[in-house]
């Protein structure tokens, strides 16, 4: 699907979605902002809808904007080869979002990484544990901007 068709189709599915233009969509892909509450149902549609068929989640990550967190999902369709970026704002003090590991299995590992690095709580995740950080790691999440480790971090 061409970007404009994709936008129309998505607006049909999710009227509350707002599209980003310019610098924040510099990757050249259709980029949309949405609410965390609609995510699981919308994600299911993205994969199941035969005209969208987003079956490949090639990147899942999070950005700490100091005032809030943003989840970024990059999707690709192996049938139509169109791409989509979904961004979801989360509350920084209590970040919570539904897990999509049932829809795209690769999300299981990526969500575990985001969980330990950013402290995002993925609801209904099958196995939400530390993956990279050592067992018993408590306190702050390393990839948040206010993380400080005076012993191991060298200030440039």
């Amino acid at each position: 699907m061409l970007p404009d068709e994709l936008k129309n189709k998505i607006t049909e599915l999710l009227p509350s979605a707002s599209f980003e233009e310019g610098a924040n969509a510099a990757s050249g892909w259709v980029t949309l902002n949405m609410e965390a509450g609609d995510w699981l149902a919308f994600a299911t549609n993205l994969k199941r809808d035969p005209s969208l068929a987003f079956d490949y989640l090639f990147c899942l990550t999070c950005v700490d904007w100091k005032t809030h967190l943003t989840m970024v999902y990059n999707l690709d369709s192996t049938t139509y080869r169109h791409n989509l970026v979904v961004k979801i704002k989360l509350d920084r003090n209590k970040p919570e979002i539904e897990s999509v590991s049932e829809i795209w299995r690769t999300a299981e590992f990526h969500e575990r990484e985001v969980y330990e690095m950013f402290g995002v709580n993925f609801l209904n995740h099958p196995d939400l544990r530390l993956l990279i950080l050592p067992d018993g790691w408590e306190g702050k999440n390393p990839l948040r901007k206010d993380f400080d480790d005076p012993v191991n971090m060298i200030k440039l």
Binding site: G22, S27, W29
Partner: peptide
């Protein structure tokens, strides 16, 4: 410039994505 950039390349092991904010 302010913005977000993503590139995908094929390494010997598969797809490498670089996402710069």
């Amino acid at each position: 410039p302010k913005g977000e950039f993503y590139t995908r390349v094929e390494t010997a092991r598969g797809e490498l994505g670089v996402y710069i904010v």
